[in-house]
Design a protein around this nucleic acid. Structure first.
Lengths: 235, 235
DNA sequence: ATAAATAAATGTCTAATTAACGTTTATTTA
DNA sequence: TAAATAAACGTTAATTAGACATTTATTTAT
């Protein structure tokens, strides 16, 4: 260890778990792998880290390539480094998860990667350890969103309370009492009610809300406890 | 990206932030770097990841080398990959943090590394981005220990309530009401009271407790909320 | 014009938790 | 036996969380 020069160098990758919400269900963006090994199998979007880029930069680049989106919520999840995780070579991969507004997603840009949205609960088997990465990401989101207003990153600029609630219900796979849910939400002061209604799902229509960005930033780190009895949910 | 063969390989390291508690203060174990660059400066204990070992294995190995300890609490913190973080070469480092019972620490084993315990609040400047790593680790511990009984990993088999309290007070740099603290603790059912007293700090003496290992494992993931108003503390 | 259908929006009460607060107790030493 | 020391202990008030059912706005069909 007295010198660097005869240490083994390795391939370093980033892989992105990209979540989206279509207004009803939580989805994940996968691609058909275009090269060996495991060509043709479903996979996370990833790439090798270049000499001159940081991990965050690499992850953002990949996200931009696949979705055409810039400035999305992106967080490092974990490094995965089992020596056998890729059968062809030793590759350590730093996994990132992204939360995007699915409506902003540009289909043209990604078509060359054969990208497709899947319901998180109906995902195909993934290559290598990508299934583990997705599991870890789901757990992390569940954990974090129970305490912080993370899931707003998945919503479009204006959204309705029923949408928001079904998002939480989807992420935690549970039913939430809507009166308590609304009370909790409004007490955060994060929501601004708009005039307009979304009438696509009911005759009465549901009011649109938007996020108070300032308060969102200010309160993001606070422990807001969005989920009742979280210890019964987080496994 | 169609093939691996002409991608750049890099050096991959792990660095360990090792925390200990001496019964009064939170401490961190540092070493004097024995090789260039930055030889003679204070540093985290780290090493390069070998061809055939996983990240966790590499971190455990380093921990064993430095402390002589096996089976300690070790958790991946984050990968650090700024291209300039090491001036000599591109090295991506996966940081781990460890919580050890300082009393089990064997001084003989580490002497060849010139290891030394420092109060976390009176640390020397560290090489490279190790200062950032320590900051991130401190934040993570603060975050996690507010919700999970993590800090017991720092304590010896038997410990007193006042010790436990000063541990929490040290980690959060705050005063905690001892009646509320005890009530919260005992309500978790994690503590088993022993007959024996520790009389080193008072005439009355403080009862020793030990951890109920079974309940500890069972409840570790539950949200126990050890810290009052955590949102006022976590920065 | 009215009734039926649909999903959205709303309020109250009870139980549980959290937070603030000062006094008594066990033991040693003078 | 008095003084000193730190440990151990309990109560109340305020806040928050959780359980629970009805009314409202609007559209569509009759």
């Amino acid at each position: 260890m007295a010198d660097y020069t005869n240490e083994t160098k390795m391939l370093l990758a980033v892989d992105c778990i990209i979540f989206g919400f279509d207004g009803e269900n939580l989805k994940i963006l996968l691609i058909k792998r275009g090269f060996e090994p495991e060509k043709g199998k479903w996979s996370l979007m990833g790439g090798f880290i270049q000499e001159n880029e940081s991990l965050d930069e690499a992850a953002n680049k990949i996200l931009l390539q696949l979705t055409g989106l810039d400035g999305v919520y992106l967080e490092q999840l974990q490094a995965f480094g089992d020596p056998q995780r890729d059968p062809k070579d030793r590759i350590v991969s730093v996994a990132y998860f992204a939360l995007i507004d699915i409506h902003k997603y540009e289909t043209q840009l990604n078509d060359r990667y054969h990208a497709e949205w899947f319901l998180v609960n109906e995902m195909p088997k993934l290559v290598f350890d990508h299934g583990n990465m997705v599991e870890a990401a789901k757990q992390k989101i569940r954990y974090k969103a129970a305490l912080h207003p993370l899931l707003f990153e998945l919503l479009p600029r204006k959204f309705t309370i029923p949408q928001l609630q079904s998002l939480y219900e989807g992420v935690y796979n549970t039913r939430i009492d809507n009166r308590n849910f609304i009370r909790k939400l409004t007490s955060t002061g994060l929501l601004i009610k708009l005039e307009e209604k979304d009438k696509s799902n009911s005759k009465k229509g549901a009011f649109y809300f938007k996020l108070d960005k300032k308060k969102y930033k200010a309160k993001f780190q606070a422990f807001l406890n969005f989920i009742p009895n979280p210890e019964n949910l987080i496994s």
